[in-house]
Amino acid sequence: MRLFPILAASVLAATALAGCEKQTRAPFEAGVCMHVIEQPDGTLKFNPVERNVPSMELCAASLEGMRIRFMRLGSPTRELTGAYQGKFIFVEKEGIYLGDTYEGARFMSLVRTGDGRLAVPGAIRQVQ
Results as ranks from 00 to 15, higher is better:
Phe4Met: 14
Phe4Ser: 10
Phe4His: 10
Ile6Arg: 07
Ala8Glu: 02
Ala9His: 00
Leu12Cys: 12
Ala14Lys: 10
Thr15Lys: 11
Ala16Pro: 00
Leu17Met: 14
Gly19Pro: 00
Gly19Gln: 11
Lys22Pro: 11
Lys22Asp: 09
Thr24Gln: 09
Ala26Leu: 04
Glu29Phe: 09
Gly31Cys: 02
Val32Ser: 04
Val32Thr: 15
Cys33Val: 10
Cys33Lys: 08
Met34Cys: 08
His35Leu: 14
Ile37Glu: 15
Ile37Met: 11
Gln39Ser: 15
Asp41Gln: 13
Gly42Ser: 04
Gly42Asn: 05
Phe46Trp: 13
Val49Phe: 02
Glu50Lys: 10
Arg51Gln: 11
Arg51Asn: 06
Ser55His: 07
Leu58Ile: 01
Ser62Thr: 09
Ser62Glu: 11
Leu63Met: 07
Leu63Ile: 09
Glu64Gly: 00
Glu64Trp: 09
Gly65Thr: 12
Met66Asp: 11
Arg67Asp: 06
Ile68Phe: 12
Arg69Met: 12
Phe70Pro: 00
Met71Gln: 15
Arg72Phe: 13
Arg72Gly: 03
Glu79Phe: 08
Leu80Thr: 04
Ala83Cys: 10
Ala83Gln: 08
Tyr84Gly: 03
Gln85Leu: 03
Gly86Trp: 08
Gly86Pro: 09
Lys87Cys: 06
Lys87Val: 11
Phe88Ala: 05
Phe88Asp: 04
Phe88Ile: 12
Phe88Asn: 03
Ile89Arg: 05
Lys93Cys: 06
Glu94Asn: 09
Leu98Pro: 00
Leu98Ser: 05
Leu98Asn: 02
Gly99Asn: 02
Asp100Ala: 13
Asp100Gln: 13
Tyr102Arg: 10
Gly104Ala: 10
Phe107Ala: 02
Ser109Arg: 12
Ser109His: 15
Val111Ser: 02
Gly114Ile: 01
Gly116Val: 05
Arg117Thr: 13
Leu118Ile: 01
Val120Leu: 09
Gly122Arg: 02
Ala123Arg: 03
Ala123Thr: 03
Ile124Thr: 02
Val127Met: 06
Gln128Glu: 12
Gln128Ser: 08
Gln128Pro: 08
